[in-house]
Write a protein that binds this DNA or RNA. Structure first.
Length: 220
DNA sequence: AATCCATCCAACCGCGGCAGG
DNA sequence: GCCTGCCGCGGTTGGATGGAT
């Protein structure tokens, strides 16, 4: 039923040429984003709309930041991934100038590997604490999210060598099998009373996690 | 210099959600 | 309510590149 994306019958991957890029840039600058299905014909491109959209969003858009990820960005990705999972677009939305594809690739090629070397399961990673703020409507609330949902869980499901713990950074991280319930502490509250917040209940939650230097482990 | 292999990342694919008719 | 088309997302692929042998 679906139209095949590629115009080419052999449907092979094909890199974008300079001319194609320029055509796409010119067209979008002139007419704006959107109407992707009709764009290729209008712009004189032998590509499908999806391909044009992807090229624009991931590569040609003027505000895209290219180059290596900084330590702060990497740290933020790890924290956000611990909280959100593989929601790359959401994670990328918190990293100005970065695209979901770029974040995803960086995770798979760098961070994943790094975490595995540290003896952690990157698919099941939880930071203990994430400090940031949430917006509910226009009201900003400063919070700390405590990810330690199951502190008594026995650590027998991965017999990682104990010397992994020699890596101080590894002590930041822990595995658990819990899902999306998080203990959220209202930082501004003098009582420090914890309230349970299911993040799934707030699909439109504007989660503004700002990076903080947060030494929640013995990393010195 | 040639070949092999691992890694990176741009590009593609398939699917689900949503809106409009 | 159903159908169709568009949009956006996450997973996957494969070409390019660089290091090792």
């Amino acid at each position: 039923m679906r139209r095949p994306c590629s115009e080419k019958p052999d449907s092979q991957k094909r890199s974008w040429s300079r001319e194609e890029d320029q055509k796409l840039i010119d067209y979008v600058q002139k007419h704006g984003e959107g109407c992707w299905p009709s764009l290729p014909q209008a712009a004189g491109l032998r590509r499908c709309g999806k391909s044009c959209r992807l090229r624009w969003l991931n590569y040609l858009k003027p505000d895209i930041k290219r180059g290596d990820f900084g330590e702060d960005e990497e740290d933020l990705i790890i924290r956000l991934h611990a909280l959100l999972g593989n929601r790359w677009s959401l994670i990328a939305g918190r990293l100005p100038g970065r695209t979901d594809n770029e974040v995803k690739n960086y995770w798979n090629s760098h961070i994943r590997k790094k975490l595995i070397q540290m003896g952690h399961d990157p698919n099941n990673l939880r930071h203990r604490l994430i400090k940031g703020s949430i917006f509910i409507g226009t009201t900003a609330k400063s919070i700390i999210i405590d990810e330690e949902a199951n502190p008594h869980k026995e650590d027998d499901d991965d017999d990682e060598p104990s010397n992994n713990n020699n890596n101080p950074a590894a002590k930041n991280l822990q595995n658990d099998d819990d899902d999306d319930d998080h203990q959220v502490f209202d930082e501004s509250s003098s009582t420090s009373k914890a309230t349970k917040l299911n993040l799934n209940a707030f699909p439109d939650l504007n989660l503004d996690l700002t990076l903080t230097t947060y030494h929640h482990c013995s990393d010195h």
